[in-house]
Amino acid sequence: MPLDTSTYSLALLRLDGRRWNELRNIHAQISTQAAADGSSYLEMGNTKVLCTVTGPAEGRQSGQRGGRDNEAKVEVEIGFAGFSGLERRKRKNDKRTSEMQHTLETAYSSLLLTHLYPHSTITLNIHILSQDGSLLAACINAATLALIDAGVPMTDYLVACTAASSATSAESDNSDPLLDLNNLEEQELPFLTVGTLGRSDRVSVLIMETRVRMERVEGMLAVGIDGCKRMREILDGVVKEYGKRFS
């Protein structure tokens, strides 16, 4: 579906009525499933993701149980539900999925204090129930919440956001970067996914698959990182709200 992004410059409102730096409605829950060690459910607009954590536990494979150097191994499995997209489609083991899995595995291997759990495996199972843009960001945020619920020690929240450049022509320099894209915007605009460690500016995940002019990247990154900080506050609120039940 072609999206007329040029209308943005008229009213400075996006297709779904947001301003350039507004996040979509975010709803999150933790400890949604009694059978899992940790679980979370996250909605970012119409993107809905469910994540469960198993472990740290003895690995299921008979060969190597843990990671290298006496550290825990992080495994990520992402499953797209057949009904998640606009049209029903089975997605199994395609390149995009395995790249997302790899991104999450590497990000969390360095973030979690894996040296505390030698010879063990931490398995993250992510179910994508409904997709409407910012998929990788939603997966990262849901995984962070589930790992917190599972009580796996980590240094800070890993939170992620997407940011895009709304510029339609090379001349228009006064275009705003957009925060937290939905599916339509993602198809039309060059965008990146950025994940940072909590309040700090330390970027831990950065993925961009579309082409964009060099000058614009800085603005996109700045907006993305700013969005991550707000996302951290929201997720932190969810965790604290959950904690209040036990105080």
Binding site: Q33, A34, A35, A81, G82, F83, R88, L129
Partner: peptide, 14 residues
């Protein structure tokens, strides 16, 4: 549907 022992299922019809 979630049962009390923690097993949980989700069904989508398209």
């Amino acid at each position: 549907v979630a049962l009390e022992d923690g097993t949980e299922a989700l069904v989508g019809v398209k």
